[in-house]
């Protein structure tokens, strides 16, 4: 099995990058993908970006995270 998750690149420095997803950040190797830039979505496995994600697919995943986040934020706001 291969556990992999979609995340967004926030920094690119040569063959190293930093990705963010769902409030978590991770250092990744960029050796396995072509030209990428901050803002691109990638699939991350074992510390490497293994593929650039098409915009639609990324949006679908992001939407799930955002929905959860929005629900929690609403809940927090109600009781703070």
């Amino acid at each position: 099995m291969c556990l992999a998750v979609p995340m967004q690149l926030i920094e690119v420095d040569g063959r190293r990058g930093r990705v963010r997803g769902g409030g978590v950040e991770l250092e990744v190797g960029l050796d396995l993908v072509g030209e990428v830039a901050p803002g691109d979505f990638v699939i991350v496995h074992a510390g490497f970006a293994i593929q650039q994600l098409s915009a639609e697919e990324a949006a679908e995943s992001l939407e799930i995270f955002q929905r959860i986040e929005a629900l929690l934020a609403e809940e927090d706001g109600r009781h703070d």
Binding site: L3, V5, G21, G22, G23, V24, L26, V44, F65, I68, E69, L72, E75
Partner: peptide, 15 residues
């Protein structure tokens, strides 16, 4: 079951 987004994401990354 309430789970914060970052915890959910970290759990997903680490299985």
């Amino acid at each position: 079951i309430p789970v914060r987004g970052p915890v959910r994401a970290a759990c997903e990354i680490l299985g």
